[in-house]
């Protein structure tokens, strides 16, 4: 079995690499289970601009794999290459053992795709959107009509079957797009920012539906800039920034490796945060000063807060929380995920 090496990654250390290889061997089972997606030194350039810079990853069947990064990190471009709709500038890519540039229709027949922007046909009714889409896969109407009803039920849209797409809410359109992507029963589902722009309730409904697909064995590949989404849905994540992979691992492993167990957030007012930060030195393992707050990374938030008070500092607000992928990202790039 090939280890999941990350190419061109300056932050990658051998300890992490060893632990990941071990994890992958444990979770993947026998060597007979092939990777459904393999990318090696994948690169995409637009003129002088390098959108995706020499990235490599392998995704085994049934895994839920996330590309986490800020806007412009190259996530969507990577997804478009995996989806067989954008030509790469370099490297190799294989989906179900096929090169998407040579076998575009074959690769795309294996996939379900949920694009970042909904592109439903608003002039057609909800149910017809599913039927028309299924026809692209050469599927007969005798299969598509009951399938459309079933997918609408799965997407909790049965009551809207005869409605115009225009009349649906944002969350409903998103669910319809997911239903549409499932019309060919794909084994791999690509989701580009599936919940961006949705309200919390709509996001949770969507997560629930995606979870069910994951349970049914569908390989999920998703991009997101929401760390909670990545934590909820992904078995494994690559953190991407400026077209490069900064780190790779399960959400818990990444947090363990790049952050502390807890984070104490203290606010002294935007004027004072930077000056007070110097006085906080030595509390916890390290501190990170943001414009609106200071983050103290520690394994014991309560104790760190006591120390802050012992130094005669009284923050306007304080909050102890567990570390998240946001902290991992901040550590790796020095920047926040959502700019």
């Amino acid at each position: 079995m090939k280890p999941q090496l990350v190419w061109g990654n300056p932050l990658w250390d051998s300890k992490a690499c060893t632990s990941l290889v071990r994890v992958s061997i444990q979770t993947r089972g026998s060597a007979a289970s092939p990777y459904v997606i393999s990318a090696h030194n994948l690169t995409k350039k637009y003129g002088d601009f390098t959108a995706v810079d020499n990235i490599s990853f392998d995704i085994p069947a049934g895994e839920s794999f996330g590309l986490l990064g800020p806007n412009g990190a190259g996530k969507s471009t990577t997804m478009r290459m995996i989806g067989g709709v954008s030509q790469r500038s370099g490297g190799t890519l294989s989906i179900m053992g096929l090169d998407p540039e040579k076998y575009g229709p074959e690769v795309r027949s294996h996939l379900g795709v949920v694009p970042q922007q909904d592109n439903l046909d608003e002039e057609l009714k909800v149910r017809d959107n599913l039927i028309v889409y299924g026809r692209y896969f050469g599927l007969p109407l005798s299969y598509l009509k009951p399938k459309a009803d079933e997918l609408l039920e799965f997407a909790q849209l049965s009551e809207k079957a005869g409605a115009k797409v225009d009349d649906l809410s944002g969350g409903m359109k998103r669910r319809l797009t997911i239903a549409r992507s499932l019309v060919n029963d794909p084994k791999i589902l690509l989701l580009d920012e599936p919940t961006t722009g949705l309200d919390p309730q709509a996001r949770h409904i969507l997560w629930d539906r995606l979870f069910r697909l994951k349970e049914a064995g569908t390989t999920l590949v998703l991009t997101t800039h929401y760390m909670d989404e990545a934590e909820q849905l992904c078995d494994r994540i690559v953190v991407v920034d400026k077209g490069r992979i900064m780190a790779e691992g399960s959400p818990a492993a990444l947090i363990r490796q790049y952050s502390t167990r807890e984070v104490l957030e203290v606010r002294f007012g935007s004027e004072r945060n930077a000056t007070v930060a110097a006085e906080l030195a030595g509390i916890g393992e390290r501190t990170e000063t943001l414009p609106d707050r200071v983050l103290i990374y520690t394994d014991d938030g309560e104790r760190a807060l006591e120390e802050v008070a012992a130094r005669g500092l009284s923050p306007l607000t304080s909050l102890i929380r567990r570390s998240s992928l946001e902290d991992v990202f901040l550590r790796l790039t020095g920047r926040s995920l959502i700019d």
Partner: peptide, 25 residues
Amino acid sequence: MTSAPVPLTPAQSAAKARRLGSWYF
């Protein structure tokens, strides 16, 4: 979801799309 299986394999779907894709659109 419990439904009838997809009547075409991905390879068959791709072959049909290569041949008839324009008509599907």
